[in-house]
Design a protein around this nucleic acid. Structure first.
Length: 270
DNA sequence: GCATTACCCTGAAAGC
DNA sequence: TGCTTTCAGGGTAATG
């Protein structure tokens, strides 16, 4: 999510008020095929606002419609882009009336592009499925704890579950659990109210740290301005298997949960 | 109904 | 050297 927010912030500086005159698609399917109506829905509309919900980026257009973007694993938005940019993996070229272009690039095509003519943001089907926004200061600790206690999942899976908490990806889930000193394989139902409090705090700490450094770049992520993130230098556990814990000097371990890597400190997170 | 697993994709890196 | 296999992890359909 810090990567998506970084892009949203970048784009807000550049494309608000611009009018789309044309949309050109590669024709290749992303996570699912881009609807035939995508280009038609956006053409002639102006970018009014840019929102983020979970890992989704939403361009609010005028006349009212919404352009929904999910970057998946390797998606990026580039502005300003050039018509002459190498075409490899560019799946959408959005042209504005001032002749500038916004490109959506996605090597592995796990992303999503969709456009909706709806009157409200919250009617977008993908957004309806999302759970709590962890940065929302109004989250009630007791409600959060009850949500946890009702789940039989392992805590790492819960934190990654977008229906429960929206916006936490694999990097930040490992980091959040480290901050909260909770073992990633712990069952949610065994967590105390104090654990829940530390977890919520840990998630916020991990996400805000990512935001501060404009996201994490291992190989693919770049911001809208083409700059990579810097957060990888500040990670506590993620991708640090065998290295020393910055807190207790134990060796960081790696495990697999649901086909995804998890990193943790066996001493701090017991 | 819930939790878990398999799958889509590409390119880099490891293994043989 | 060069081919094959494994891995990365976003969400979700299929399976248990």
């Amino acid at each position: 999510m810090p990567e998506v927010e970084t892009i949203a912030r970048g784009l807000r500086k550049f494309i608000i008020g611009k009018q789309i005159v044309d949309v050109e698609l590669s024709g290749l399917p992303l996570r699912r095929p881009v609807a035939e109506t995508f280009a038609r829905t956006l053409r002639g509309h102006k970018v009014r606002r840019i929102h983020r919900r979970g890992k989704y980026l939403i361009l609010e257009m005028e006349p009212l419609s919404y352009c929904l973007v999910h970057l998946g694993m390797t998606g990026s938005l580039c502005y300003p882009a050039r018509a002459t940019d190498v075409a490899a993996h560019i799946h959408a070229r959005i042209r504005f009336s001032d002749a500038t272009e916004l490109h959506y690039r996605d090597q592995r095509r796990f992303g999503l592009l969709a456009a909706y003519e709806l009157s409200r943001l919250r009617e977008i089907p993908e957004l309806k499925r999302l759970g709590l926004d962890p940065l929302d200061p109004k989250i009630d600790l007791d409600r959060f704890w009850q949500l946890l206690r009702r789940s039989k999942q392992e805590i790492k899976a819960f934190v990654l579950d977008q229906k429960k908490i929206a916006g936490v990806g694999n990097i930040y889930a490992s980091e959040a659990l480290f901050h909260a000193r909770i073992h990633p394989a712990r069952r949610c139902s065994t967590l105390t109210r104090e654990d829940a409090r530390r977890l919520l705090r840990g998630i916020r700490t991990a996400l805000r740290a990512g935001l501060r450094h404009n996201g994490t770049t291992f190989s693919d992520f770049i911001g809208a301005d083409g700059e990579p993130g810097a957060h990888q230098r500040y990670l506590r556990v993620f991708q640090r298997e065998g290295e020393r814990c910055r807190r207790c000097r134990s060796r960081i371990r790696r495990s697999r949960q649901g086909n995804r890597s998890t990193f943790f400190c066996p001493r701090c997170q017991s």
